[in-house]
Design a protein around this nucleic acid. Structure first.
Lengths: 124, 124
DNA sequence: CTTCCATGTCAGAACTTATGACATGAAAGA
DNA sequence: TCTTTCATGTCATAAGTTCTGACATGGAAG
């Protein structure tokens, strides 16, 4: 089960992909970051690299805003869920090779299964 | 079911992400393209954009090569499976908005389910 | 010994992302 | 109503990434 969390926290998606997945502008995505609502990793070249967890988060923020919720509230809300998030640090310790294989599995899921009950599906 | 195929054929992944997912070099990935083994889309800026189907394909090619199979053989092999691939054209007709939502669902799957039986899982 | 293959590597041009600053319409206050 | 604050848009400049084409190379195949 730890693997699932790891897969989702592998940060390999660039801004353009996240924009496509969330339908948010780069400006919005970066702004939410300044509001401490997402914490993308950075590659060697200082480019933001998002994980699927980050994408989920952004979609939640998007929903929250649409629902009139403010950032402070969302920050507080997320604080609870963040206990698990420390797993993200763990992924950084994995060799690239290992990480790749984990994400491969994760991407594979895309193939065709029933969506669980987290953030993204609400947007369907 | 048509949606599933659409999701997997949404091309939004850049070279760097594909490199991370396949553990192949950019050179290899582009070379396989010259061998007609993958056909990534291009964005407005002429940058390659891969779909999850493309990633799967690349992993299959990688396996094929490791098994001593040659490109011509793989090309022939894939020809069969390509009937379905025309669906990719269909995705281009979808509005961006629509496409995004489809891929969101697809990405959502990553959340946590049992992997099906296609290419990627063989690499785990 | 000579070719062909699959990759590596390099160079220059074009595209993308990063940061910081200025602008703005809509809310919220005063 | 006048004034801030908020969430975004838009610009400019710098730096990172990807593209294509070309030259190089170790190992297979002849």
């Amino acid at each position: 089960m730890a693997e699932k969390q790891l897969r989702r926290s592998l940060a390999i998606l660039p801004m353009s992909t996240v924009m496509a997945l969330t339908d948010l502008s780069a400006r919005q995505i970066r702004y939410y970051e300044t509001q401490s609502l997402v914490h993308p990793a950075r590659n060697e070249g200082n480019r933001r690299r998002y994980s699927l967890n980050d994408v989920d988060r952004l979609l939640e923020v998007k929903d929250g805003l649409a629902s009139g919720m403010d950032f402070a509230t969302m920050r507080r809300l997320y604080a609870k869920t963040h206990q698990v998030e420390s797993t993200q640090l763990e992924s950084k310790r994995l060799s690239d090779e290992r990480a790749r294989h984990l994400l491969e599995a994760e991407m594979q899921q895309l193939a065709g299964m029933r969506p669980p009950q987290s953030g993204l599906q609400q947007h369907l």
